[in-house]
Nucleic acid binder design. Structure first.
Lengths: 134, 134
DNA sequence: CCTTGAACCTATATCTACTACAGGACGTAC
DNA sequence: GTACGTCCTGTAGTAGATATAGGTTCAAGG
């Protein structure tokens, strides 16, 4: 059973020390044990949880969703149904975002291609930005 | 030449009154004229600029990029080259984001399909989140 | 045992990009 | 001239961290 200082935990997870303390403060990560002198002592559970949080954030889950997932996944009892719902909801948002970005990508590509790159007063990019959306 | 109150400007652009004052404060939007009593009086230039800002933000340009675009596009002199560079950089980021989200979408879809939806202790979604990225 | 320096502690402030008050002044229509 | 909507400034709040200041603890070397 590993006993980790906050610095070791930070190195193992890639999460900033200040952010770990912040997560503890807002209740995202449980309060760890302390040494006699007051230094935090984390265990493998904290390591697992912090990795989980980091990965979920990287995958685009909102902090509130992460919290819910932690609440559900923690005791591992009322699992799949609710977890699944959050994941599906997230999936829908991801698909919507991909659509939006793809449209923007096409628009930007076309615009940049039009752009001569010279010092002309007319610029396709500026024009695009000045044109109100229909 | 239109003379707009802050409220009219807000209605015409869809930007909140407080946000307009905020844009003025941070120098994103030029300071307007004032009535004798101190009320702001905007003109068509402000309207154009604010619409520009709004549209650029909607298209995902970062505030700093918007500011640079305004600086470049304002006097319309050193135009295309730099504008083009910002647009291309933005385009690259958009493409990267699309790739990331597409991978996530595939991953989530596969995971949710695996998920029975019952009350089993093993949950594919939780598993996915607990598995560290290679 | 004692020193030294890295790591840690709390508390507060800062950041971005806004949004939301509170309490008062202005402007215009009747 | 008065009522009411709009506007003013200034301050505070939001999320989600990140950074700083000033002090304490831990661990390794002498």
């Amino acid at each position: 059973m590993g006993r980790l200082s906050i610095g070791e935990l930070a190195r193992k997870t890639g999460v900033h020390i200040e952010t770990i303390r912040y997560f503890e403060k807002i209740g995202m990560l449980g309060a760890p044990a302390r040494t006699a002198g007051g230094h935090r002592v984390f265990d493998d559970g904290h390591l697992r949880t912090l990795k989980f949080i980091k990965r979920a954030r990287e995958l685009g889950f909102a902090p509130k969703e992460v919290r819910t997932l932690l609440d559900l996944g923690g005791p591992a009892e009322a699992c799949c149904d609710e977890v699944r719902e959050i994941a599906i909801h997230h999936l829908e948002e991801v698909r919507r975002k991909i659509d939006d970005l793809t449209r923007l990508e096409r628009h930007l590509t076309a615009t940049v291609e039009q752009c001569s790159g010279g010092h002309v007063p007319d610029c396709a990019v500026i024009d695009m930005l000045e044109t109100a959306r229909p």
